[in-house]
């Protein structure tokens, strides 16, 4: 049996009276592109900090590539690269120096320099490699932060909101690079506020709410199981009462109906005919992860 990239068993974390994680069990296999979603305060970053050994669990165990993050922390950290959420940097050094230092902390020497250069190139940092971290723009600092987590070429990479506040170009560049790393066998764990990113990139997602995992499945299954498709209608008149249970959203004469199966389209149209309501326009839209997220985590939450 292949060792899981990350195995989390009965993890609980208490901050004073706050129960931040209430017994999480999760296994992420090697080579997965895994999404961790949830509203602010759901416990995503706490879980990542526990994986990284920045926090100690109140109860439970986490292993990275088979190594306990508390007892065998040196091995587990060798296998893990974490991109922190906050835009932090060391003001004394330039990008290349920082990356070489970071690799050095993990025991990597000059033999690793080619990889550091590749990371610099792939993240579009080549022009800024000799620029002091202080002088970089916000987007460039974000790139450098990501590069630092990759400097020792870890098999498991955790990206905590890596694209928060960054431009489209960097997002594209970052995801191209991360997808390539994933194809090369690296396990990627991603938390993001951009659900369309998770939908496009992640093979499997876990949704967290108030310190618990409330849904865990492949992205495909989750989309199928929870959301199906959406039927958007522009009507001349109001929606018949028989269709109200399917209504997801209605404003003026625009209505969105949630469908579990395609056969429901015919049902909706026949009900409209019966009620003599004309259809001005109609669109069938695939539900996205946001629909799933809202149906599981609840409206009024943001990922």
């Amino acid at each position: 049996m292949v060792t899981p990239a990350v195995s989390i068993e009965s993890i609980q974390k208490q901050f004073g009276k706050l129960n931040a994680l209430k017994g999480i069990d999760l296994t992420i296999e090697q080579g997965e592109f895994f999404g961790l979603l949830g509203p602010n305060g759901a416990g995503k970053s706490t879980l990542i900090n526990l994986m990284a050994g920045l926090l100690k669990p109140t109860h439970g165990q986490i292993k990275v590539m088979g190594h306990d993050v508390q007892k065998d922390y040196q091995q587990s950290r060798q296998n893990l690269g974490v991109v922190p959420q906050e835009l932090v940097f060391d003001p004394f050094f330039n990008v290349r120096e920082m990356l070489r230092f970071q690799a050095g902390y993990f025991g990597r020497g000059p033999e690793n320099d080619a990889w550091v250069d590749e990371v610099i190139e792939s993240l579009g940092l080549a022009d800024k490699a000799n620029t002091n971290m202080r002088r970089l723009s916000g987007g460039m600092k974000r790139r450098a932060l990501i590069a630092q987590a990759l400097a020792h070429k870890p098999p498991v990479i955790v990206l905590d909101e890596p694209t928060a506040g960054v431009d489209v170009e960097l997002r594209q560049m970052l995801w191209d690079f991360i997808k390539r790393l994933n194809r090369d066998g690296h396990t990627i764990i991603l938390t993001t506020h951009y659900l369309e990113e998770a939908e496009t990139l992640c093979g499997r997602v876990a949704m967290m709410k108030a310190g618990e995992i409330v849904a865990l499945d492949t992205t495909e299954n989750m989309l199928r199981q929870f959301a199906g498709k959406n039927l958007c209608l522009k009507l001349k008149g109001s929606l018949p009462a028989s269709l109200l249970p399917m209504l997801k959203h209605g404003e003026n004469n625009l209505f969105t109906l949630g469908l579990n199966e395609l056969g429901q389209v015919e049902y909706a149209l026949s009900e409209l005919r019966k009620a003599h309501v004309d259809v001005e326009d109609m669109q069938l839209i695939e539900a996205d992860l946001e629909d799933v997220f809202l149906s599981i985590v609840g409206k009024g939450s943001s990922a």
Partner: peptide, 17 residues
């Protein structure tokens, strides 16, 4: 400085004992 700036995390994430 590293604590206030937050960059101490780069050292805490390493396998250094």
């Amino acid at each position: 400085q590293s604590k206030v700036m937050g960059n101490l995390v780069f050292i805490l994430l390493t396998p250094l004992s």
